[in-house]
Design a protein around this nucleic acid. Structure first.
Length: 778
DNA sequence: TGCGCACGTAAAT
DNA sequence: TACGTGCGCA
């Protein structure tokens, strides 16, 4: 979730890359994403909260063991990815989510609500025998519990893979590791990482090891919005204003609008004032919440592997203390923090996680570890919950007692902090939960609920406020245990089984068909023989998968596995001749993986060119020539860019027909000179390119009214009128046109600061007079 | 009228 | 996450 639309906004600086290029590097990995992905294969079991037919088919059918199996099953799937990274020489540094942040309570609650609804729906579908639809719904309500994470941790320990459980959000922890230089980059699908300040984000990793790299240093090359001169703080504020996990966005304000408003008004206060002036209704607490969100992004607690204690992601500047920011979560004592970080202690309940080893009657005895809350009967996971519907809540739980606030703010001297309302805890429960939560910190015999349920709870507002106001010792903003709550797992559902065999969508499942398989891999070569494929299959396989396959012949969700492994085997083959290491920036478009794979191919053939061409033209994206890709080129936009105004200008000129032609010719590597005229260039273009060229040219035409007479002039000449050559007006620089060229093209967002001219006084003016002569005839 | 944006929905993971 | 739709603005 996070900030939606961030990746599209940064599209122009996304570079396709490959894991194998990260050989020897350590990448921090958002483990939650992997677990979540892997859990899709077990969606039905998880959703039902009980063993399915598949599990019953195991040789041992005891309930507890079956439950163990459903956990380990997706852990196994997650481990596949770990192995893939290792295969490419990358050391994953797995980072797990910890406790929930008070700042995120509202988001979590709405997610929980959705999950609950989906679970309900899925169970109904299942009852109705619509198993495939049910699976889809179950997949939407997957939640990852600390116990599940812990199971993966056991595997990681065995493999010697570094990991850490964050005290709160993995995002902040990932960025901290990067800042500390403990990792070379971050591998995650969460674009929020950039808001936290990630420098190098690898995202959209596929099964072949292809991914997208976003570098913070490339921000100034972003063409969707001009981020030149924008600080991390500006970027963060833009993201927050458009809406993030910690605060709802302003109505009608997305990323671009937030960008524009901040460009104009500079500060959130002025943005709010401006909006209010325009008649928009903005909550009185908006700014308070805004700064809460900002501080959460900045100062969230993380675990420092060196100091072995909690630190802030960004050290406090002295302006405020952690106590004044209860929304970032409570501090955890070093000893406890270490236990959490190592995965020995449940980050939410703060109770030790008990690891049970599977009594292995399995052929390949492996120490499968599962963490079950001790002495907790399995049935307790499926009990009903006492979530209070919003409509039945005490309306006062949303309001803040002014006296209390005055007390808290110390007469206005301290910033007001209103923890988000928690509609899922009723007022009666608050007292109970508050009392329970405190002793639980001491981890002594907590009242246990389902792990899923516990994650959802945060501290009551009252106790949080009380602590802010008075409490001397920092206590964690924790959850209470009193209420069994809604869970992703349904409660006491009838034990009827689906009539049809449940078809699970495994993570690997997507690989199965040939369409998914990259067409850029030499297909026949690797299909040497079934035995070969089988042997390759072991590359990323492990015992439990094998075992699953053997034991569960009826489960088709695993079938594609072999195919996937086969493709990975192809990878393996690929990795040898790939020393060209091409794809960096071969294209910056959606077709990253395609073009990347094209360029991966050592002999760049005609079809690959045409593909590039076809992609290059319509996207209006500056791309490096694929031919020159071999020596590891960087995108045109990214390289040393000493003069930003120069960059901006050149990108603008690319929109003119001639320059776009020259761009294309450079892309195609066919034009001897970049100054080839449109006609010549066009004649060399494929029909698709011509289409693209036509599509791009009108963009500029409305901005260049003066340029229209030029064709006319050409027509006159063509008519063969007797003219003295010396009188023929040369098609030279039309200053109006040049000016038009120098103006922003298309969106006003693609401009250098303040050129939208609405609030000019506030913005630093870039050199308006550019030296155009060097570009005019190029 | 066209464009850009936000937002809702469907599909894929 | 991608795509389609509708709204608001110029």
């Amino acid at each position: 979730m996070g900030v939606s639309g961030l990746l599209p906004l940064l599209k122009s600086i996304q570079r396709p890359t490959e894991l194998k290029k990260c050989n020897g590097e350590i990448l921090a990995v958002d483990a939650y994403g992997w677990l979540h992905r892997a859990a899709y294969s077990c969606a039905v079991e998880l959703g039902q909260g009980k063993p399915t037919r598949r599990l019953v088919s195991f040789p041992y059918t005891l309930l507890a063991k079956s439950v163990l199996t459903r956990y380990t099953r997706y852990v196994t799937a997650a481990m596949h990815r770990v192995r893939m990274l290792k295969h490419f020489g990358v050391t994953p540094y797995m980072v797990f989510d910890g406790d929930y942040l008070p700042s995120k309570a509202a988001t979590e609650d709405s997610r929980a609500k959705k999950r609950e609804e989906k679970t309900k729906l899925a169970n109904e579908l299942l009852k109705a025998g619509k198993s495939s639809q049910a699976t889809q719904e179950f997949q939407k309500c997957i939640d990852i519990t600390p116990e599940m994470a812990s199971t993966l941790i056991q595997e990681l320990k065995q493999m010697g893979v570094p990991y850490v459980v964050a005290p709160y959000e993995a995002d902040a922890q990932l960025v901290y590791l990067e800042r500390q230089g403990l990792v070379n980059g971050i591998l995650s699908d969460d674009s929020d990482l950039l808001v936290f300040g990630a420098k190098r984000l690898l995202t959209k990793l596929d099964q072949y090891g292809n991914c997208i790299e976003i570098n913070r240093r490339d921000f100034c090359a972003c063409r969707e919005v001009s981020l030149t001169g924008w600080s991390d703080s500006d970027f963060r504020r833009m993201a927050i204003m458009s809406g993030c996990d910690y605060i709802e966005g302003l109505p009608g304000v997305g990323l671009k609008t937030a960008y524009r408003m901040l460009r104009k008004s500079k500060t959130p206060e002025r943005v709010v004032r401006m909006l209010q002036f325009e008649g928009k209704r903005i909550s009185e607490n908006y700014l308070t919440q805004f700064y809460q969100a900002e501080l959460t992004f900045l100062h969230q607690w993380v675990f420092c592997p060196n100091k072995k204690e909690l630190v802030h992601l960004t050290e406090l500047d002295g302006a405020r203390t952690a106590k004044e920011m209860p929304f970032i979560g409570a501090h955890v004592e070093p000893e406890l923090a270490r236990g959490i970080a190592t995965g020995d202690i449940n980050p939410i309940t703060k109770a030790p996680i008990v690891i049970a080893t599977t009594p292995s009657k399995r052929r390949h005895s492996q120490t499968t570890c599962i963490t079950q809350p001790p002495r907790k009967p399995i049935t307790s996971y499926f009990k009903g919950h006492s979530r209070v519907p919003m409509g039945e809540m005490d309306p006062n739980c949303f309001s803040v007692d002014p006296q209390r606030v005055a007390q808290i703010t110390d007469g206005g001297l301290v910033p007001r902090v209103f923890p988000l309302p928690r509609p899922y805890v009723d007022s009666a429960g608050q007292a109970t939960s508050a009392t329970i939560s405190t002793p639980r910190r001491t981890s002594s015999a907590p009242v246990r609920t389902s792990p899923t349920l516990r994650r959802r709870r945060t501290e009551p507002i009252s106790s949080m406020l009380a602590r802010v106001a008075s409490s001397p010792a920092p206590t964690r903003a924790s959850d209470d245990n009193s209420l069994p709550s809604p869970s992703g797992a349904p409660q006491s559902e009838p034990p009827n089984r689906p009539k049809k065999k449940v078809r699970l969508c495994d993570e690997e499942g997507d690989v199965d068909g040939s369409p998914k398989r990259s067409k850029f891999f030499p297909p026949p070569k690797t299909k040497t023989s079934p035995t070969r494929a089988r042997s390759d299959a072991y590359l990323f396989s492990d015992d439990s998968i094998e075992e699953s396959l053997r034991d569960l012949p009826d489960f088709d969700g695993w079938k594609p596995l072999n195919k996937r492994e086969r493709s990975i085997a192809i990878f393996n083959d690929e990795s040898q001749p790939s020393e060209q290491g091409p794809s960096q920036g071969s294209t910056e478009d959606d077709s990253q993986s395609t073009s990347q794979n094209i360029s991966q191919n050592t002999e760049i053939t005609v079809p690959s060119q045409t593909k590039e061409d076809a992609l290059a033209v319509p996207t209006d994206t500056v791309m490096p020539p694929p031919m020159s890709v071999k020596p590891r080129p960087r995108p045109l936009t990214t390289p040393s860019r000493p003069n930003l105004s120069r960059f901006t200008f050149s990108s603008r000129t690319s929109s003119t027909p001639s320059s776009s032609m020259s761009l294309q010719s450079s892309v195609f590597s066919i034009g001897p000179t970049p100054s080839t005229g449109p006609s010549t260039a066009a004649s060399r273009m494929t029909p698709l390119q011509r289409l693209g060229a036509r599509a791009t040219s009108p963009i500029t035409s409305p901005q260049q009214p003066k340029s229209k007479p030029r064709p006319k002039m050409g027509n006159d000449l063509a008519k063969g009128l007797p003219v003295n050559p010396s009188f023929v007006p040369l098609p030279k620089v039309d200053m109006a046109e040049v000016e038009a060229l120098n103006r922003p093209r298309g969106s006003e967002d693609q401009i250098i600061p303040d050129s939208d001219g609405e609030v000019e006084d506030e913005l630093e003016l870039p050199p308006r007079k550019l030296n155009l002569s060097q570009f005019a005839f190029s």
